[in-house]
Structure formats: C-alpha cells, structure tokens
C-alpha cells in the first residue's frame, strides 16, 4: 500500500537536520522533592540519521523527546538543531506520540491539516494534506472521524499529520507501542520506507529491542533513572533488513545484556 503510494507521492528534497544534545540534565519537582530524570546526556545526530533510544520504562527517554520537541526547557545543557539552539516548539521538529491524540472533533483530513492551519498556510497548500494522506494510504478515509478508525489507522493519520509539515526531525515517542503485533510489523516497514524516501532525521523512543534494531542506524541505550547513556551502538546493516539476520540477533543479545535482561534470553 505504502510502496504504491510512495511511487505517486510528491517528491520532497532530503531535508534532515543535525541534532546536538549537549550535556542535557533535567529534573522534575514532585511534591517538593527534586526527581532527576536526565543526567548529563550528550550525543549528536547527523542529518538524516535514524536513532533509536532504548531504556528501561520510566527512565526519561520520553522526557528527552519533549525537550528536543521544545515542549519543555532543560534544567541545564543545550539542544541544537542544525547548530541553532532549540528554544521552543517549531514545526520543523514534529512529534508522533504513543497515543495518536487525534482531535475527535475534526475529520481525518482536518486533523492532518492541523499544522498547516496553525501556521496559516493551509489555504495555499491544501494539496500537501492530500499528498500526506495518500502517503499513509488513507485517502478514502479523509472525511471519517477519528472514532471510526482502527488503532493502526489512527496512528497512520498521526504520522501523516506530522509528515505534512515536512519535518527536518521526526520525533517518534513509542508510536507503535499500543498497536497489535501484526500492525506493528507492517508499520515498522512503512516508517523505514518513509524515512528513506524523505530523508528526515528520526529519533525513536521504544521499549522493543527488535524494533530498534530493525529500524535504526544507531541505538542509544540508557540506564535507569536518572538516564545516562550506557552505550551507543551502530547498527551496520543495510536496508531493507530482515528480522532473522544473525547480526541483528547478536546485537540484540548485547543490548539485552546492557539492560540486564540477557539471563532470560
């Protein structure tokens, strides 16, 4: 479905931005107690790279994504997009959350149009909404309301809503976490295809080691909270990848070892 859509889709220039995460530390105040969540996190991402962030549940990966998106400011450290410090949200860095969070009062088309409408350019750029819907294979559902969609379709709409803005950095916060395993496998392939086609830089938070290895150029493994980087692993396999690849199995064992879960494997 996507392959077909890709063949017809409008071509965009490869637009990935570089991202520098420079000595980021962050903490939350909870009932007067300071809870450190990120501890001196330092890494950089080349334009067009696909990075997966892996770590135990609640370690602060999602917080890091919120900082990259500009939804919150870090307690210390700087984030740079193409060398410029991140000071707030901007449509060049778009997030797809774990819940699709589509606006229930808007149709699919109007949900996808949200970004262009918010930026005041929808009137002249309507065809971009159609193209984005085409890209995720949901053109026939343009007039449907979110409650009429399945979980996978809703997440595809959320993806289209992000892609319509031609992001330089696509931020994926466990976007497939709540989908059934079959839809997950399909959408993993779709995400790779979209990323290769569009060339945006991608940051993916996931709990799924296999997913990280199937999708990413590099997997960054975090420790328990407060999160610090435990390992930065290059996944040196070409795309399209195969889940049975012995090299990926080897990497998975390494990563599970880093997370302290190798005994169960």
């Amino acid at each position: 479905m996507v392959a077909h859509a890709l063949a017809e889709a409008v071509t965009y220039p490869a637009v990935g931005a570089s991202l520098d995460v420079e000595r980021i530390s962050h903490a939350f105040d909870i009932d007067g107690n300071v809870l450190p969540v990120l501890d001196d996190v330092n890494f950089s991402v080349k334009p067009g790279e696909f990075i997966a962030l892996l770590g135990p549940s609640g370690c602060g990966k999602s917080t890091l994504l919120r900082l990259v998106a500009g939804l919150e400011a870090p307690r210390s450290g700087v984030l740079r997009e193409d060398g410029d410090p991140v000071t707030g949200p901007f449509p060049s860095r778009v997030v797809v959350f774990q819940d699709p969070t589509l606006f229930p009062w808007r149709t699919v088309w109007n949900n996808v149009a949200l970004g262009l409408e918010a930026q005041g350019i929808l009137k002249t750029q309507r065809q971009r909404v159609d193209a984005a819907l085409e890209l995720v294979g949901l053109s026939q559902f343009r007039n449907a309301y979110p409650h009429q969609l399945s979980g996978g379709m809703a997440q595809r709409v959320a993806l289209a809503r992000a892609l319509v803005n031609d992001p330089k950095i696509l931020i994926l916060d466990e976007p497939l976490g709540k989908l059934d395993s079959l839809t997950r496998i399909t959408m993993q392939a779709e995400i790779v295809a979209l990323w290769q086609r569009k060339g945006f830089t991608t940051l993916l938070v996931t709990h799924d080691v296999e997913e990280a290895l199937f999708l990413a150029n590099r997997v960054i493994v975090f420790s328990d909270r407060p999160a610090r980087i435990k390992a930065d692993i290059a996944v040196d396999r070409p795309y399209p990848r195969h889940r049975g690849d012995p090299r990926l199995a080897e990497l998975r064992r390494n990563i599970l070892g880093l997370l302290g879960l190798d005994a169960t494997w």
Binding site: R66, A69, G70, L71, P89, F90, P91, R93, V94, V95, F97, D99, T101, F103, W105, R106, L114, G115, E117, A118, Q119, R161, N165
Partner: peptide
C-alpha cells in the same frame, strides 16, 4: 482539555490564539 492536545498543536506550530479557538473551545463544547 487534555494537555496532550495542546502539546500536539504546539509542536505543529500553533500560537496561543489557535490553542484557544481551535483546541480549547471545540474540546470544551
């Protein structure tokens, strides 16, 4: 109104007026 809606709109480039008119009010209707 859930903060998640505001987060989504903000990352897509929404200004405060958009958040009130196109997020808060429709959600509260």
């Amino acid at each position: 109104v859930s903060n998640a809606y505001y987060d989504v709109a903000r990352t897509l480039g929404a200004k405060p007026s958009f958040l009130v008119l196109k997020v808060a009010i429709p959600a509260a209707l």
